[in-house]
């Protein structure tokens, strides 16, 4: 058995045995890591709050047969301002939930890691709102290779006569390709989604509240459709 170093952002953890937790992290090098933190539920644990969700930590791991055991942790970035606000916690929850759904074990995931890190940094610096979640989900879809076609037909690639949006066909469809697939989106919605996908988290385009809310609905359904899994954190607090 060997000792190795790694780092990662804590996605979630769950109780394990009497006082331990299984801590699930996203490592930039190794994808999803499932590790054991011994005694972490005791108030006297030397890990303290270092293994709470959303924390970017440096780890020393003792390799085990099934799960690696954490022997040392130090915080690289703790995002303390994010934790002090309920809306930001819920937003961060939906980010890690989506990442958890797409990340694989033993698979390098640098782009996914950097996306999550940027998302959490944006939340920590004060960016909140549905635009951020929408933009995050669209970029996540891009990282895992299922980005929706928004500016050209998903079937033929033509940028003209875009008519409907189809979850199963992977985005907008033009007049010629649509057949009976897809649904009509309200004017301006695909353009707004495209702008959110391109934008930096710190410079997200504004829109009227109902458009912002519809955009999140479409992005969420799109990601849920392609991950074949519902994102429950988005339902928390409406």
């Amino acid at each position: 058995m060997a000792i190795r170093n790694d780092q990662g952002i804590v996605l979630r953890s769950y109780p394990f045995g009497e006082a331990d937790r299984v801590v699930v992290l996203l490592s930039p090098n190794r994808g999803k890591l499932r590790t054991v933190a011994k005694g972490v539920r005791k108030t006297t644990s030397r890990f303290g709050g270092r293994l709470e969700p959303f924390t970017h930590v440096d780890l020393v791991l003792y390799e085990g047969k099934n799960l690696d055991t954490i022997t040392q942790v130090s915080i690289i970035e703790g995002f303390p301002r994010l934790r002090a606000d309920l809306d930001r916690v819920v937003a961060a929850g939906s980010m890690v939930e989506a990442v958890d759904a797409v990340a694989q074990e033993d698979e390098s995931s640098l782009r996914l890691f950097l996306l999550l890190q940027r998302g959490l940094r944006a939340l920590d610096s004060g960016v909140v709102g549905r635009q951020l979640i929408t933009s995050f989900l669209l970029k996540l879809a891009d990282v895992v290779g299922v980005a929706p076609a928004l500016e050209a037909c998903a079937a033929c690639g033509r940028p003209e006569e875009l008519a409907t949006f189809s979850f199963s066909s992977g985005g907008v469809l033009c007049q010629r390709c649509r057949g009976d697939r897809g649904m009509k989106l309200r004017p301006g919605l695909t353009e707004y989604l495209a702008a959110l996908e391109r934008a930096e988290f710190t410079d997200l385009p504004e829109a009227e509240p109902s458009l912002v809310s519809d955009a999140m609905g479409v992005a969420r359904r799109f990601v849920e459709y392609h991950l074949d899994r519902s994102l429950s954190s988005l339902a928390v607090l409406g």
Binding site: P53, V89, V90, G93, S94, E97, D100, A235, V236, L237
Partner: peptide, 10 residues
């Protein structure tokens, strides 16, 4: 407790 990640809301 409220758990955004596990979908436990108020």
């Amino acid at each position: 407790a409220i758990s955004p990640i596990n979908g436990v809301g108020p």
